[in-house]
Write a protein that binds this DNA or RNA. Structure first.
Lengths: 220, 220
DNA sequence: CTCCGATTGTTGCAAATGCAACAGACCTTT
DNA sequence: AAAGGTCTGTTGCATTTGCAACAATCGGAG
């Protein structure tokens, strides 16, 4: 098992991690496709690391409505949110393909362990960092979704990509069809708007390369 | 200064807190209306507790676009998110009215202090808990905003309220006009939809009391 | 090369939504 | 009682968007 690329263990050496595994008696478990890895209802008592495979986090409301909350891939972390904050409804982590998982007991996180691992604090800090990142991602998405029109949503997204790159041009990280999902709009409607924006001289699009043409301000 | 109602210090006694204040040399500072309490750019080095007053957290993009991220009231916490996760753009906390604030250095949070306060860990845990809650609130909002129609957004909101209460009736916690903002729709459009929903026998509305009439399923 | 699937691009039409404008209800203050 | 504010409720109209259906392009597999 290689933990080095796992964000949760950033800054901790492989040997330290393996030593630590005793503390929270962590052993890798396997789950076949379709199996429920863990279910957070009331009794949420551990978080987990997905060492291999793909899984989804899905929320099940009391009324049976179901929604996919997150997609987990190799090295992904799950349960960090539901372990402490008491979720109102059930959250399940389900294997989409064969998965290998290590669970870490919640208790281990909240107290120094008997062995007084030096890296204990490091991991708590990592956890904190990962949560912060998640909050920021979500805030950003809320802001995007709060834009009233497709055009505003697109501009918001484009500006953000550009800011990240530092230039006024960027390469789409995924196909336009996925962008439509992301901004929560119908694909054809989005394409139509994209065309108008091109005609209005707001953007230039070449394949997956998008260039923002400065001259627009005040999209409040 | 009374810290007892402050979520960050939950589970810690008043005397302990005051003793702790030495550790992170926390002293209350005052800010007049309109003043910037703190600005998180690169150099984010402390979180803060709003002991009194009202403030807003706002994000300023590189392009100058500004958006209010959060409203802080008495006992509110700020900076927990930006302190560690490196924000891409600047975040400011600004006093809306006269504010009293205590800052806690980031260092104090990440390491055990010299005095080895017993409650240190408790506070880190509280912080973690608060972050989890925030993630859940945001996830919920993303889910709501991802509904394609006003009707679906309203149903989602109503179901959620009912689930919380445990009944099929609940009292609106704020005026309908605010609900419109929350679901990110035009108020009149929302009222129109609300009327249709009443006509379709989905809900019954009496003043601020809303009753969900079961018979609907599959709003996917 | 050829076929196939995924992606991009387009269009007509119906439905949903935003916008503006207004009226009545209710509450508090003067 | 009168006045002013906020909240609720309504409606016409223009615009935006979703939906369905289809054409064109591209890239890889055989």
């Amino acid at each position: 098992m290689n933990f080095l690329n796992c964000p949760l263990f950033q800054g901790v050496t492989q040997t330290e991690i393996e030593k630590m595994m005793d503390c929270f008696n962590g052993k890798a478990e396997s789950f076949a496709e379709g199996k429920t890895i863990i279910s957070y209802a009331e009794n949420s008592d551990s978080i987990g690391v997905l060492l291999d495979g793909v899984a989804v986090v899905r929320r099940i409301g009391r009324n049976g409505d179901l929604s996919v909350q997150e997609l987990l891939v190799k090295n992904g972390l799950f349960g960090e949110v539901f372990c402490f904050g008491a979720a109102k409804d059930t959250v399940e982590v389900v294997a989409v393909e064969k998965c290998t998982v290590v669970f870490i007991d919640k208790m281990w996180i909240t107290r120094p362990c008997a062995n007084a691992c030096g890296c204990h604090l490091q991991i708590i800090q990592n956890l904190y960092f990962l949560l912060s990142e998640k909050v920021q991602r979500l805030s950003e998405k809320v802001e995007l979704l709060s834009k009233r029109s497709i055009r505003q949503k697109l501009l918001y997204f484009f500006h953000r990509q550009c800011a990240q790159e530092g230039t006024d041009t960027f390469l789409m990280p995924f196909p336009f069809s996925s962008l439509a999902e992301y901004v929560n709009a119908d694909r054809s409607a989005m394409m139509r708007e994209l065309k108008k924006m091109r005609e209005d001289g707001l953007v230039r699009i070449n394949g997956r390369s998008v260039t923002l043409l400065q001259r627009d301000r005040e999209e409040e």
